[in-house]
Write a protein that binds this DNA or RNA. Structure first.
Lengths: 203, 203, 203, 203
DNA sequence: TATGAATGAGCTTTCATTCAT
DNA sequence: CATGAATGAAAGCTCATTCAT
């Protein structure tokens, strides 16, 4: 019985988080009112406060969801092509730039980032999932280094960090340049990956 | 006389923008109240409204200032070492990561980024200076391509874009990882730059 | 349930309008603050804004109420004495001059009048009820003309207009002359009404 | 020399009052800012405060001016036709309804009226000039009564009051009905004046 | 649990007035 | 006398949160 009740609560929470995420994407955290969220979730104000202690609580939960999604995408993209996991990242992520949610979600991420620096609770959840994302990259990097495909002298954590940085930096630019040349960007990225490939001397 | 008057007005505006920037860095745009800005600028509320039409106006001005600063840093860094302008970027920018303002300012940039997607006026000022920053990079890239140092097949605008992306992505990570290994990050970047260097075949 | 809900809302609206009217009479529209109204209505600021979109909205509603009251008085006064409806108007309205609300309400009407010339929303509601008031007068005037009591050559709408004008003009004077001789004023009015009576030749 | 200075001050005061009156007509007393008045008068804020102690002071002066104008018009209209001074009033005042300033000025009068009930200083100036206007009417009324043209049994002050009331009431209606039938209104007025004329029995 | 009316602190902005120049 | 930058009280309005039903 508590099993059922718990599942019910979880479903409601997810319903609220999803609604909130849509609102946040559209209007930002601060300009989204609790009423906006309630309306979007088809719930009354009181109901929402049964599942979350405060608006900040909803923001934090939304942030974790946002990061969880990114981490998931990274790990599945890296796992999809064991032969060339890093190259596959570029092939998987760049086309996303044309999805309508791309900018919408990017803006939420950057909003979260700036909130994080003020609210430790948000930062906490954020970092946890960012850690997970990085871990999902470090592993294939190490594997490729062992296989002699990547320059073994480079710190695998740093490589993973640069990859994430390039991705987030691309999202950042994309916010301002909807017409950005994603393919050109991808070509430069691929060329750069060659720069961290193992050469004869470094093998 | 109008010369003096105008200079006076400019000085006051700068005083307000600087104060506002500090507040924004500390509390974010929305949580910063106009009164906070006034207090930080040592001015009365009415005085501030003599120089700016609204809080949004101050945000927009702050945003332009933020971008102008970045563009300036990029152009001066690229100009400092004509032999290796791109490599110099890494050498100039990475050490900044340890400055106390690094995270503080990064957070403002990302806040601005997310505001931009909602407020066209902010986006306008932002994009203008982002354009300038990119232009300052495209030029040395082209020069290096002509000199046969960089792979001429790559689109110079895309190269510039990736460089900016890496920088902003690094700032992003730095917000969450104060302990991030900047040197390791730099090493990977340098290795990557080698990936876009001209090789014999492409020369 | 919606029946009850609706009735509840209407009751609250009336509560607010009444409180607002008292404030407006005492201090005028502009000098009455929303907080004044809230205090007078024994409600919090937020509560009031649950029932009205803005202060102007409250003013408009108050204005309609004000006009509605006048129209109602006119129509009931005219209906009370079918033999001499116009004469009855004088008999009914003049004694009101001694009521304490007389000046208080007059001032609201004139304030509304001047607001109307600027705010179309207020003017709209105002005119609608003024129309109704005039209509309530035109009908008895026409009836008296048919009965041969009033000069049939006069435009009944103009007669109604003059009657309203005399009433409002009297209120106007009363604002400045609390000691005005209402009976003398009434005598002159009655004499004037004789001037628009049908004479042998016009019968 | 003080003569000249005094004349200069008077000229400036009039300049300000006129500008203020235009502003008040357009936006109402409360929504007119001191800056509006200064701009309309082509003077700096400080300059205006050299001639008036406060905004209320300007309003009061404007009000006296407004009433002075009406009193002047009444007295000159009544004096113009010694044979039929009252009839002449109708002939002079009704055509004014088509002047563009008619409604504009009416609104100021009603605004003043409602301010008067709150501000004794305004009321004071207002009443003084209203007294003058009434006096200018009482005299010809008395004269006509002596000549046996008007019913001598009526209180001349009340007659004057009704005349002013009709005029102000007409202005009031005109605010809401730009299309009001002024001629019809005039005909009714003339018929009414006949009602207060002396008849054989009352002569 | 669900509801949504009520709360009131706190926000941005305006504006009458002062006063150093 | 003229100027207009500076002041700061106070305005209208919003919104996170509570709580009786």
């Amino acid at each position: 019985m508590p099993q059922v009740r718990e599942a019910y609560r979880e479903a409601r929470r997810k319903q609220i988080i999803d609604a909130a995420y849509r609102c946040f994407a559209e209007k930002g955290f601060q300009k989204t009112t609790v009423r906006d969220i309630c309306k979007a979730a088809n719930l009354s104000v009181g109901a929402v406060y049964n599942y979350f202690r405060s608006k900040d609580d909803i923001i934090a939960a939304s942030g974790e969801e946002d990061q969880r999604r990114i981490a998931e995408m990274i790990s599945s993209a890296a796992a999809a092509d064991p032969e060339d996991p890093l190259g596959n990242l570029v092939r998987v992520f760049l086309p996303l730039a044309n999805e309508p949610e791309f900018v919408r979600d990017a803006v939420v991420t950057f909003d979260l980032c700036s909130q994080s620096s003020r609210d430790p609770e948000i930062a906490e959840g954020f970092r946890k999932t960012l850690d997970a994302a990085l871990d999902h990259l470090v592993e294939p990097v190490k594997r490729q280094q062992k296989r002699g495909v990547l320059n073994a002298k480079l710190d695998p954590y740093s490589v993973a960090a640069v990859l994430v940085a390039v991705y987030q930096g691309f999202r950042y630019l994309r916010v301002f340049y909807p017409e950005i040349d994603a393919d050109g960007f991808g070509s430069v990225c691929e060329a750069m990956v060659r720069g961290i490939s193992a050469t004869k001397g470094e093998r």
